[in-house]
Design a protein around this nucleic acid. Sequence first.
DNA 1: ACCCGTTGACGAATCGTTTAAGGGCTCTTA
DNA 2: TAAGAGCCCTTAAACGATTCGTCAACGGGT
Lengths: 351, 351
Amino acid sequence: MAGEPKGGRVTLADVAQSAGVSIATASYVVNGRDGVGAETRAHVLRVAEEIGFRPNRLASGLRTGQSRVLGLVLADITNPFYPEIAGGVIAAAAEAGYRVFLSHSGGTGDLDGEEVRTLCDHQCAALIFTSLLASDGPLIADVVPADVPLVQAVRRASGLAADFVGIDDRAGAREAARHLLELGHREIAVLAGPPGSSASCERALGFRETLAAEGLEPDADRVVECQLTVDAGYAGAKRLLAAGSRPPTAVLCGNDLIALGAIDALADDGLSVPDDVSVVGYDDIWFSSSRLVRLTSVRQPRHAMGRAAVSLALERLADPGIEPRDVILPHELVVRRTTAAPRLQAAGAGA
Amino acid sequence: MAGEPKGGRVTLADVAQSAGVSIATASYVVNGRDGVGAETRAHVLRVAEEIGFRPNRLASGLRTGQSRVLGLVLADITNPFYPEIAGGVIAAAAEAGYRVFLSHSGGTGDLDGEEVRTLCDHQCAALIFTSLLASDGPLIADVVPADVPLVQAVRRASGLAADFVGIDDRAGAREAARHLLELGHREIAVLAGPPGSSASCERALGFRETLAAEGLEPDADRVVECQLTVDAGYAGAKRLLAAGSRPPTAVLCGNDLIALGAIDALADDGLSVPDDVSVVGYDDIWFSSSRLVRLTSVRQPRHAMGRAAVSLALERLADPGIEPRDVILPHELVVRRTTAAPRLQAAGAGA
DNA sequence: ACCCGTTGACGAATCGTTTAAGGGCTCTTA
DNA sequence: TAAGAGCCCTTAAACGATTCGTCAACGGGT
């Protein structure tokens, strides 16, 4: 009955012809613009439906310069933290009629300029970066057109005035450290994330300033920097155990993956968690709440962060003039089974 | 020095003008087509670089009808299995100069037609679905234009003649079941995935036919179907324990998330794994290899599956005529610490 | 009866790229 | 030297949608 006239897909021109109106009118109708009579509108809509019209987003994007597409750059897609952010981004984008391009910048998180450039070639309306490194700031400015809004999620690059969504990493870290102090720990090590990541820096800072306030600034071999992976956490913890004369009674970790690796390493050395050593993670990935793990960690509202990033992007798109904003979402220290008071002999040994 | 002539971005026309050639020539050059003199070519390339030309993929896509974009639909982005497939897809796509749109169809995995339609509106060159349900087949045919190649990964929909990439789920399941049999288990329960998923069905079939071959077809209350999540696995295992007069000595699970939930539930009931009950998962998500878990599971080559899906899509794009193909990748039963021989009293009780 | 404001619809230019068709050159060859 | 063959390059017409400016028709006010 109602087939496409040509071999290809149904275009606005087909709708216009079938409905006996001009292409312009058809366009106004399908876009819900006014200036079209109610009758005509209804008729065109019905015809469009009948012949199976679907707008070509390439064409409309070309004409308007607005592609209803967001670019999302994740650092490490295998870290469960990021897919959940992506979930929030995709959901919020879909609600606003946007689609999202997913990119990932390899494990280390440093940005491939060409990768981002090709993303921009598709005329993304805005770009959302999780996991920028400090050094990515200048690069990005070169690589993405000035009129494309940028949103930084989780981490921020230095020298980049762009909207940001995240949590107060330092405050979260302070709470984590204070939790250990309150349990009575005094021999506390830090398995920090890489210094290029602003979030890792803030966390490390929060850990250390809280310990320092108690006169507990840890010495150099009690602070190890490592990548944000299980393997790196394992290796880092091994290094920690090899270096100190005595193992720490607690470890503050830059994220949950490090914490997981550390727990493995401790177990390898016959140290049990939390009886011998307490471990605190950061991010509270879903895994951490499993009964097998029960990791004490600092929870980030991952899904909400993704949604907020989209809001920031769309708002800036609507009004490019506004000042860059920071959206700081609430975090929460979730205490589970990997932290406990230190053993008596260890706690009393200092005197 | 070299700035854009207009306020907007640098177009091919700008390159042509700056280089003193026609737009057509500029186009031939940037696309690496021949029929352009070596000198001219070099000159145009230099100019393009200098003034910062970047092709507008919307325009080229509109013109050619080919958008160098792949659509990827994942069921559950929080299941670590899928992001790794996505990683493979994105990597392979990038190598071929394609970008990928990421979509996810909510936890249950049933497809939202409108979601897929809007994906197609962006003129995706091909679509890759992980996690189709049986009932999605007819829907998809209605929803995506006939000239867009479809690739099914992991699962397949019934009545959809499209390329497929996955593993031999039934064979993997048979190996898992045989592993338990060889350990001496006779009281084996199954926590199967939802029947709408072809992969879950195949696995359940593989489990059951292997048990049946030993005369061990489990009775109805030893087979529970549940969604592919930790929570569902937990609930399913609870149901299992409540139903049977005696707990099984082993449980075969539809995927690792179910297995994780089951382990939690067993622990809740004071049953230890593997001493009281052995548990086998499926998928071998990265988590399962953690020392905290050490789940016996069937490994799927996730990254390779993503890459293979892209290959299938691009090959079909190049030659739409070829017959639908199945790419079956190798799987591997990975035996870890959640499976062991049954307790003596349990094993001997049957006689 | 005339003018004017309003409403509803349309024509045509435009976004940036690709590509078929064509047109000057130079060079070879008879 | 004229014709034919390449080689380079250009002209111009698409692709499918948006949108500005125009215009016909209609009704009401004077």
